[in-house]
Each structure stands twice: as C-alpha cells, then as structure tokens.
Lab assay of single mutants.
Amino acid sequence: MQRVNMIMAESPGLITICLLGYLLSAECTVFLDHENANKILNRPKRYNSGKLEEFVQGNLERECMEEKCSFEEAREVFENTERTTEFWKQYVDGDQCESNPCLNGGSCKDDINSYECWCPFGFEGKNCELDVTCNIKNGRCEQFCKNSADNKVVCSCTEGYRLAENQKSCEPAVPFPCGRVSVSQTSKLTRAETVFPDVDYVNSTEAETILDNITQSTQSFNDFTRVVGGEDAKPGQFPWQVVLNGKVDAFCGGSIVNEKWIVTAAHCVETGVKITVVAGEHNIEETEHTEQKRNVIRIIPHHNYNAAINKYNHDIALLELDEPLVLNSYVTPICIADKEYTNIFLKFGSGYVSGWGRVFHKGRSALVLQYLRVPLVDRATCLRSTKFTIYNNMFCAGFHEGGRDSCQGDSGGPHVTEVEGTSFLTGIISWGEECAMKGKYGIYTKVSRYVNWIKEKTKLT
C-alpha cells in the first residue's frame, strides 16, 4: 500500500490518463441519441435557420407576430419608411378606419389613436360632414345658397324668414311668412316636400332668348283662358290664391305678392273693366268669414305684352289694390325667389296649380277651390304637342294621358313649387288646347323671366 501511494504521488498524470480511459469505455446513459432527441424537440425550422439574422431580410411573422416588435424591426421587413409607417399605425392600436367614419364618399386613412378623412370636392370637416359648395344638395341650405369668396357655403332665406341657429334652416321672422300653410287642420295635408338634388348652379339658368321682337298675326285659340281631375282644397291650404270678379264672377285667378299687390295673367284683364279681388276665398257660393274683398285701382301688364300681336306672350300683369290686405292664416303671400332659384325650383319637376275653373272641358265651374299636382314636361315634348308657338318664356306641365289639367277660369292662378315646406311661385296658368285632352298640356308663363320686374313694381313704400 505504501508503494502504491508513492507511485500516485510521483505520477499524477498517469492516474488522470487511467481515469479518462475508464470513462470513455463506459456506456453513456444520461444523453439520448440524435434521433430520439429530435422526437422530443420537434420544432419547425425557421426561415433563416442556421444563418445569422443580421444578414437576412426581415420576416413579418418572425419579427412582429411571434413577439412584439419595434418600429426598427418592422422597418427591416418593409425596407421602406412609408410602408412601415402605414403598417405601424394599425399594428400599434388597430384600424381606426374600420367603422368607416368618413361621410359623403370620403376616404379614410388610419393613424395612431386617430384617423384622417380625405374629402371629395365640396366637403370638409373631420368626417367630411361639412358642405362647402352650393353645387351639392344646395349646400344643405333649406332655401338659398351662395358661395363666399373663400368658396364656403353661405345660406340665406327669402323675405319674412331668418336663418336658424344651425345656419342652414329657415324659420319665420314674421307672423305670416310667405308660402307657408298655417291653418292647423290643413298642415297635415301639406304636399310632399321637395329635397334639393345635386345641381350645376353655374349652368342652372337656361341660355334662352326671349323672342321679344317676333311679330306674329293673332292666333285663334280655343278655350285658351284655361282644375280638371283635381281635388277639393281645404280652407287655408292655398292662402296665396285669390279669385278675380268682373263682368262675371271667378273669371280668373291670381296670387298675393304682398298686402297691396296681386300677380295674374295679362290676358285676364281689360282696361276700363272694374275688377274686384277676393282673398281668403274657399267656396265661392258661401260666406265663410275668411274672405277679404278689395278693388283694383291700377293694372300693370308687362311692358312687352301686346294682345294685338299675341294674347299669351309675356302673359303676366300686376294688380294694385285700393287697401292693403290683412295677412292671416287664410290670406298669405306666395314666396318669389330670384331668377336663378325660381328656375331651379321649376326644374324640380312638379308643381301645384289651383283655381275655381271648370271641372271638365266646357263644363261647370268649381264651387270649392280645386288643386292638382302636375309634372313638368320637357321642352321637346311640349313643342311636338301643339302647332302653336311655345315661346321661351312659357313652359308645359300636365299629363300625356289627359284627364287632369287646369281649365277655363283658372287662368292667372299660381303654379307653385314647394321647397322644404315653403311654396314659391314658378308659373302662372296661361293657356292650353281644350282641357285635359290626351297628348295636350297646360301652358304656363315662366315666372323666372319676370321676377325682377315683379319685385321692382310691387315694392311697398
């Protein structure tokens, strides 16, 4: 034993070699072989497995989906700052455009905790909710729209109204504003409101030439003092309507412009014939205590009207009353817009006519005020429907199939267009061939041609 100890002390290297040989010859039971080890760690190889990531292109799944990435790591994937920024906006807080917040056709661009709407022409605001041009839906104005110097929408209202708090709607500024039905039992019968379409306001006024200088022999019209197929109006439903009495009662109609003036057809009036105007009328054979009678003290036909040349060209006249009318729910003026808007309103496509005229061709006159909704007829169809001249200051309205029309005794009465609950004068009943005849239409004086003249002559002093 002493000898062994001496050998170990003198030859430590020998001992180490012996131990190493023993270990190498022993069977290893701690580690699995290569094949079995792979069965336990069965993990798919990654895209760049075996390579240094710093030297390969980034992978979106590896960089940002398996674990949260930084902007720089995302930049490695896209290799483009702009594309990385677009991805980053949604990656950080989701897609803010998912709810489609942009209105009126706006395009949404996502941002971090926010979004941006790219608005089409005519709109602005956070969600493109603000109209900035009158060309689109009248700028959301209830009545009139004008573009300011910086191309912003400025709404306005006709006389007797003021802008509401929203700067879009119009509200009454006087007790009985024009064009409004205020009798409670008839307010439910107000005709369907007309909503502004998209309009090209630059070209809204037709490029028409008034044929002022045409000389033409007097034409022989049949029954051209021209509501057939209409309905009984309720008291106060058309408070701007008046009836004219002269040699015979209810020979023509008219509309209240203001307390002192009536507008009617020029062919209705004769110099030297006494005319009485009755406002607030409903049943011409009954006294309903809503009527107001006034005498006409002055007749002003349009300066281009000449019955000797043509009885229905420039067929418009103004009547001055001896005493002002007292405005109330049964006696209310009709609204008159400017030339541009009167023309736009007419193009809405349908209007209402009213009167006490004959209820059928050569038949009896109506006792109760009649009204009828009539569609506008395109000019080409209008011209083809008659052998008589249709001037540019006239328009056609009615039904091709016949059966409904204005008729004798309705002449001078109103053709009105309702705009968001307020009625505007767009025409004056003038003439036609018979009444409600198939293929024939009622012919009306186009008020847009005469609004400046009306307003100039009827100013209240």
Rank of each mutant, 00 (worst) to 15 (best):
E208K: 11
P120A: 07
S350L: 13
L460M: 15
I256G: 00
I336Y: 01
A266E: 00
L318Q: 01
M6Y: 08
H303W: 07
E456G: 10
R162M: 05
Y341V: 13
A9N: 08
V273T: 10
V296A: 05
C108H: 02
G432Y: 13
I262F: 02
Y391L: 11
A149V: 09
N304Q: 11
H314G: 04
P197I: 04
R3I: 12
S169Y: 06
G412D: 03
C268N: 01
H289M: 10
K247W: 08
T461S: 07
D131F: 06
R83K: 07
F121Q: 10
E10L: 07
R294K: 02
S70D: 05
T158D: 02
F345S: 01
C102Q: 01
D150Y: 08
N245I: 09
G402H: 04
L460F: 12
D111G: 08
L372W: 11
I309L: 11
R226T: 10
P175N: 04
E116Q: 12
I275E: 02
W118I: 08
K234Y: 13
T389D: 15
P324F: 02
E142H: 04
E27I: 01
Q2E: 07
L14M: 07
Q2V: 14
V56I: 04
C335N: 00
L130E: 12
C268T: 01
P197R: 03
Q219F: 07
G363V: 06
M65Q: 10
Q167K: 03
L19T: 04
L369E: 15
F87T: 15
K438T: 04
E116I: 04
R364D: 12
N38E: 13
V56Q: 09
K152I: 11
K89S: 06
E72G: 15
D322V: 02
L163Y: 00
S70M: 08
S107L: 06
E208V: 05
T386G: 14
N393D: 08
C268P: 01
N222L: 09
A26V: 12
Q237V: 08
D212A: 07
L163N: 02
G58Q: 03
G254V: 00
S217M: 12
Q57N: 15
N245Y: 12
E67A: 13
K274N: 10
E285M: 08
S220K: 08
R191Y: 03
F238E: 01
Y91R: 15
S11I: 14
V248T: 05
Q96N: 13
V154F: 11
N151H: 09
N104S: 14
T458K: 02
V174F: 04
M437I: 05
A37W: 03
G230M: 05
V4E: 05
T264K: 00
G253C: 10
T458D: 01
Q90C: 13
K126T: 08
Q237L: 10
D95M: 09
V257N: 00
T16H: 09
K260H: 05
S169W: 05
T85G: 11
A164H: 11
V277D: 00
E434D: 10
E320S: 02
K457S: 14
T218E: 09
R140L: 14
R358I: 06
A192L: 12
T386R: 13
E129Y: 05
V416G: 05
K311D: 05
V227S: 07
E288W: 06
G94D: 08
D110M: 15
K168A: 13
N147F: 07
R46T: 15
E208R: 10
L52W: 07
V359I: 13
I17C: 04
S114V: 05
K68T: 15
F176W: 08
Y91G: 15
G236F: 05
N80M: 06
V228P: 04
E67M: 10
L60G: 15
C28S: 12
T422H: 03
I7N: 06
R404F: 08
A279K: 01
C18T: 03
I300K: 02
G160K: 01
Q408C: 12
K362V: 11
C252Y: 01
A207G: 08
L372V: 12
T209P: 06
K247M: 11
Y341P: 06
K51V: 09
W431M: 13
L189T: 07
